[in-house]
Amino acid sequence: MSSESEIAALIQRLALRDRAALAQLYNTVSPKLFGVCMRILRDRSDAEDALQEVFVKIWQRADRFSLAGTSPVGWMVAIARNHSIDKLRSRKPLGDSLDAAREIADTGRDPEAHTVLKSEGRRVDRCMGELEADRADAVRNAYVEGLSYQELAERYSVPLNTMRTWLRRSLLKLRECLDR
């Protein structure tokens, strides 16, 4: 993959409506962004549709890309995550309603099968380390897989409200740690 500054330059060329830059950017980052869509949507055809939408949005929002914000890849991954999560939520509207609040007893799913982040000692990793292990795990899985509160509750075999409390407290602790 090209360097961050090369990718940032491509995004800036998109803002100038440089069509050749779009193809170049696509070739550079589409595998990563498709990986994001696949992981969250878990369906190849949906992920392909999502990838199209994501590049349309990247083109349309290129003028709002700011070097001061996140990294250029991080900016595009955020677009891919948000779009994929929106699609996922609209695919399953009923099960995800907070108001529906169906309390799930123990489906007993084992929360093992996820990759452990290869920590590079970054701030977020240190702060995640301050959380209880299963709560950090829940935060990570929510982020990476786009799990809803309902799905997290099922996966960790806790009632929905408990999961909501867990996650909100975890976010509060994370925020405090990250701001330290």
């Binding site: 779009l22 193809a23 696509y26 070739n27 589409s30 595998p31 990563k32 498709f34 990986g35 994001v36 696949m38 992981r39 992920a47 392909e48 990838l51 199209q52 590049f55 349309v56 083109w59 914000g69 996140t70 990294s71 890849v73 991080g74 991954v77 955020a78 990759t115 982040l117 290869k118 590079e120 970054r122 701030r123 977020v124 990793d125 990570r140 982020y143 990476v144 994370l174 990250l178």
Partner: peptide, 24 residues
Amino acid sequence: ERDLSALNAEYGEATPPASTLAKV
């Protein structure tokens, strides 16, 4: 988004269909 972007390392790469760029 900035703080959690370190978790993006968890996403692997996948090859999209060859026709996607043309559709975009």
